[in-house]
């Protein structure tokens, strides 16, 4: 059933990672991503991997779920690794055996290095998604981009649009389910025929769905106006984030990781 689709990747919980200030979480993740590109040796990656293992344990998210985030990009990882095998330079693995002589030790090292970087990048950046609800995430983005308001960038409006869009995904999924069933009850067939027939069969679902999306949008706009919503100016907040000790600890840990990676870069 369509309901089984997981939307976003939020994995509810109340671990210290979940409770962290989402702004700090976002910034730390950003730093981590940059750091992965600074790393130039395997020891650096080992430090980063240790951090990820520690965060996984702390957040109580099943390791299997964490590793799942690699899946969508598995093809790209394999693709990158494969080509790196042949463009590494250094001494060949097999001497003069046809095209295999292009396979070099340096290539193997490069392939492993690039794959590790992508994997760590994926796993590290999805932690924000796993431990922060979408609404909190947009809220954090809005706050971090706050200074852009001075340049007349409609930050609040964008954040509001994002929040509303995410809020309505489950509603629309539900609606799609209902409409599909109603049309099935009228004998609509979505499962047989060639691609064109199947695409055409979607019209009885799409039209009512779009109509209902517009109806909902209008109702929501009315409801917001009734409650005197008029944009972000002068709006106060219900949830005020403040950095707590756990956030400072997180920042310190990240600083230590960064320092050790840079030290390793210089030393090796």
């Amino acid at each position: 059933m369509i309901k089984d689709i997981t939307l976003g990747q939020y994995f509810p919980g109340d671990s210290p990672i979940h409770k962290m200030d989402p702004r700090v979480k976002l910034l730390i993740t950003l730093e981590f991503v940059v750091l992965l590109f600074v790393v130039n040796n395997f020891y650096g990656f080992a430090v980063c991997a240790t951090l990820i293992v520690a965060v996984t344990a702390l957040s109580k998210i099943p390791p299997k779920t964490v590793l799942k985030s690699i899946k969508p990009l598995l093809f790209i990882i394999i693709f990158t690794a494969f080509f790196n095998l042949f463009y590494g330079g250094g001494s060949p693995v097999f001497e003069s055996v046809g095209w295999l002589r292009w396979l070099t030790w340096g290539g193997i090292r490069n392939a492993a290095f690039m794959s590790l970087r992508i994997i760590l990048l994926l796993v590290g950046s999805t932690f924000v998604m796993y431990t922060t609800s979408p609404v909190m995430l947009t809220d954090a983005i809005e706050r971090l981009l706050g200074p852009l308001k001075k340049l007349k960038v409609p930050v609040h409006e964008f954040a509001m649009m994002m929040t509303i869009a995410m809020r309505f995904i489950p509603t629309l999924v539900d609606e799609t389910d209902k409409i599909t069933n109603a049309q099935k009850a009228r004998g609509a067939d979505f499962e047989t025929g060639n691609i064109i027939r199947r695409a055409k069969a979607l019209i009885p679902i799409l039209v009512p769905l779009i109509v209902s999306a517009f109806r909902r949008a209008e109702e929501l706009a009315d409801a917001m106006e009734c409650r005197c919503y008029n944009g972000g100016d002068g709006r106060t907040r219900y949830k005020i984030y403040s950095c707590k000790s756990r956030d400072y600890v997180a920042i310190c840990v990240m600083l230590i990781v960064t320092a050790s990676v840079i030290t390793l870069n210089v030393l090796i």
């Binding site: 209902k178 004998g187 009885p204």
Partner: peptide, 22 residues
């Protein structure tokens, strides 16, 4: 089967075509 709020399933350009869908 007529579901709740069946008017939400209307989609054709005319009422005739919509009733004729089934």
């Amino acid at each position: 089967l007529v579901f709740q709020y069946p008017e939400h399933q209307l989609f054709e350009d005319t009422v005739y075509n919509d009733i004729a869908f089934g």
